[in-house]
Write a protein that binds this DNA or RNA. Structure first.
Lengths: 145, 145
DNA sequence: ATAAATTCCCACTAAATTGATGGGAATTGT
DNA sequence: ACAATTCCCATCAATTTAGTGGGAATTTAT
């Protein structure tokens, strides 16, 4: 039940875009450098992010990527659904026809419930809200010695 | 982010025990037959379940397994933790030392929060509560034609 | 005693998923 | 023209997961 690197790196990519995308497109090279992730690996995450509208691209020199919509409207759920596929805990959560035992179908309801709560939690975080927290943290001086 | 078969089958095994363990130990063979899962595969799940106290075993002919404690005290979280290991969404959720970038550490808090909510959801289901739901479902006549 | 049923414990193989990399064509600003 | 980029093909390696095999030990029933 671990999140794959694909999902984790994707979120960092998007978060980096949210923080650094203020003035023009940001190149993958820059993101990769800041996040210390192989540019090559990140490039694999681009197509799904782009085709789902979460990012837009600008080709050519000085090109790069920008968020496809406002950071307040992009949630972790959005990003992870695109990169990890439907996040049902079990296959049959969406397709009842896979499951023909009654006891099993009962348990399926349980998985659905848990999955829903998980997705709700993921949906409650937007790129903007995470960035906001970050800002607050930087403002408040540390009390440690 | 799918649950592995290990976890799913493990829950079904435990649920089967909760339903059929009223009179004496239940053999793996019976569980495997009812749940339509290879007995061999199920046998792999036994050692961790046993060493964690979720089940007890009775060896020899007429032997089998019984729940290690009351069905009201066994949650899905208990079962999945034993079979799938710590369910942090990311490695560093428990060990901050793995992560040395501030932006990353911020996101780590997010993963922790989501993980906590997920575990809370899993903890809210006990074998007894699931069995109870099952009973209710069987009592209520269906209104479909 | 013997046989049958059953847990228990070793290890191994096959399949699927995930992580990571390579190379080159197309596009665009300088 | 050139350099910086996205873009799109594909491949390889590593890890995890699924599933199987065989036999020793234990206990009950006959």
């Amino acid at each position: 039940m671990k999140l794959s690197t694909r999902g984790r790196y994707g979120v960092r990519l998007m978060f980096d875009l949210a923080l650094n995308g203020g003035n023009g497109p940001v190149s993958l090279k820059d993101i990769a450098a800041r996040q210390e992730i192989s540019e090559k690996y990140l490039s694999n995450l681009i197509p799904p992010l782009r085709s789902s509208g979460l990012i837009n691209s600008v080709r050519g020199s000085q090109g790069g990527y920008v968020l496809g919509k406002d950071a307040r409207e992009i949630t972790l759920k959005d990003i992870l659904l695109v990169l990890e596929g439907p996040m049902h805990l079990v296959e049959c959560a969406g397709q009842p026809e896979v499951c023909n035992r009654s006891t099993d179908c009962l348990i399926r309801d349980v998985w659905s419930e848990v999955g829903t709560r998980m997705l709700d939690a993921l949906e409650s975080f937007t790129l903007a809200s995470i960035a906001e927290k970050q800002k607050q943290r930087e403002e408040v001086p540390s009390y440690s010695i």
